[in-house]
Each structure stands twice: as C-alpha cells, then as structure tokens.
C-alpha cells in the first residue's frame, strides 16, 4: 500500500513538472503551429534566473531574508523568459509562420546558441540552487510515507499556473482574442484584432511559463546549460498525446505520460519503461491520431 501511494505520488509529481513545461508549448504550438525547440532553453533561462536571484540575495540581503528569495525568483523567471520570448518572436519566429518544420530547425539553432552562451557565462558544470529552508522536509501520511514539501510546492505551483492560464484564456478579453486568432486567423483579423500583437504576446506568455518551469526545476536538482533538452522531447510528447488547442488535453497528456512513465519504470527498468511508454503513445495514436482532445475543424489541412 505504501509503495503504491508513493509511486502514485511520484507519478503525479512527474506529471506536474511535465505539465508546467508542456503548458507553454501547447499555447505556442496550438495557436501558431510553431515548434519551439528553444523552449527547453527558455526553461534553462528561468532556472539560471532563479540562480542569479539567489546569488543576489546572499550578497546583498540579510541572511534572515534568504528564505524568501524563491518567492521573488518565480516572477523574475517569468519576466526574464517572457522578454526573451518576445525578442525571439519579433526577431525570428514571425518570419517562420506557416513553416512548422522550418521553425523547428531554426529554433533548434537558437537553442544551441543559448546553451553555448549560458555555458560561457555560468560555466559548463552544473550549479546548485539552495532551496529555501521552509521547503525542506516533508509531510508524513499513512504512517511512514513521506511526501517532500518541494514536490508538493511544485504541484501547487502548477495548479496555480493552470488556474491563471484558464482565467486568462477563457475569461479575459485578451484571451478571447487569442482564441479567436487560433480558430480563424483571417476572420479575427477582419474583425480588427491585431494578430501580430496577439502572436507576439502569446508566444511571450508561453515562454514565460517555461521560465517558471525552470525556476521550479531548481528545487529538484542542480541545473546546467543543457537542462532543457532533458525534458523537451517528453513535453512535446505530452502535446502530441493531449492534442492541441485545449488546456484539458495537455493536462490529460501530462498525467498520462507522467503516471505511466513512473509505473513502467517501477515495474521494469528505467530504459525499458521509456520504450513501453513510447509504444503506448504510438498505440494510442492509432486510436486517436490527433491526440486526446482535438479542435474540431472542417478544414482538410491543419
């Protein structure tokens, strides 16, 4: 029983991290059909922002306040990654709309450059970020199962992000414009929506969420220039499995992959588990080729 609960918790924890990473992807991919391979590097930027904020706190702030650096690091990561995303969209992505495969290659190049730049600034070895004290330890449930606070915190963070995104996409004016552009770009433009601006803002928001994901990853382990590549393919699989265009799909995709990953790896070995998950995804796509939740559309090529 304990083992089951622990594995379940681990699975959900993995899912939450995947979800945080895939959330950003699902909007950029869902709205603009842009495959942003540099998403992993935006995660890396978020993680290094948290690292810098931590260092600033240790040098300029009294030690008693150190525990609060993380609270500041989350919005800081968002803003830095947001700005990077904005620059990326305006400088490169906007030339690549309608060419998804080309956008994939170009953003891969950008990711490669960003990794190299991070390597020259922060050095190739991984750096550690000290988690704030109030996140150490864990909650004991069912006698002797310990759920670490860090993992619970990430879970909470994901839920908050999910809620905010829901509100933004489905309840705000700006979100409605975004959905309008996603559903029918020409029509939205005819109605006076500046699709260029929507594109830029959407891409930047997706990037900002990647920044938050990076900030959360600092709680789990040391960070390095190539931390993003570690997660990026899994995150894309979440999007493929979940389908694009709806938040629900991404959530299900993340939970599905996260849970099955943990369970298969528990039953078999780490490497065989990954193979099984891949086979399951391919098998699932036989049944629903466009993912779990697909946008209904009458157009033939989309």
């Amino acid at each position: 029983m304990d083992v089951v609960v622990l594995q379940l918790f681990n699975g959900i924890s993995v899912s939450s991290i995947l979800l945080l990473i895939a959330l950003g992807l699902s909007i950029t991919f869902g709205l603009m059909k842009v495959i942003n391979m540099a998403h992993g590097e935006l995660i890396m930027i978020g993680a290094y922002t948290a690292y810098v904020v931590q260092n600033l706190f240790t040098s300029y702030m009294p030690a008693s306040l150190f525990g609060w650096y993380f609270v500041l690091a989350i919005p800081a990561s968002f803003i830095v990654a947001f700005l990077f995303g904005l620059v990326l969209e305006m400088g490169l992505i906007r030339f690549l709309y309608g060419r998804p495969l080309d956008s994939l290659l170009a953003t891969w190049g950008v990711g490669l450059m960003l990794q190299q730049i991070a390597r020259s600034i922060f050095g190739a070895p991984n750096v550690g970020v000290t988690s704030p004290e109030w996140l150490n330890g864990g909650m004991t449930v069912l006698g002797d199962v310990v759920l670490p606070y860090k993992r619970l915190f990430i879970l909470g963070l994901v839920l908050v992000c999910l809620f905010l995104m829901y509100v933004y996409i489905y309840r705000s004016h700006s979100g409605r414009r975004m959905r309008a552009v996603m559903q029918n770009r020409e029509m939205a433009a005819c109605l006076g929506i500046s699709t260029r601006r929507v594109d830029a803002v959407t891409f930047a928001i997706g990037s900002g969420i990647a920044g938050i994901a990076g900030c959360a990853l600092t709680l789990i382990g040391p960070i390095g220039p190539s931390i993003g590549t570690y997660y990026i393919v899994d995150a894309f699989m979440v999007v493929v499995l979940g389908g694009v265009g709806k938040l629900v799909g991404t959530v299900f995709g993340a939970v599905g992959i996260g849970l099955s990953n943990t369970l298969f790896e528990y039953w078999t070995t780490a490497s065989l588990g990954k193979v099984l998950v891949f086979l399951c995804i391919v098998a699932f796509l036989q049944w629903k080729p466009s993912g779990l939740v697909a946008m209904r559309s009458r157009s033939l090529d989309n």
Binding site: I35, A270, S271, K274, F278, V282, L285, Q286
Partner: peptide, 29 residues
Amino acid sequence: VTFRNRIRGVYFTILTQALVIITTTLFVG
C-alpha cells in the same frame, strides 16, 4: 503506424525524435 493514420508533419517529426531518445536510453541501459 503513422502515415496510415495521417500522422504527419510536425507530429511525425516529434515521434521520430522520441524514437531516438528511447533507442539511445535502451542501448545505454
């Protein structure tokens, strides 16, 4: 399993990339 279901474009590309990851982990493991 992909082309028959009209899984193509970027979806196919991402699947091929996943194939790379699992194959390398399998070979390392």
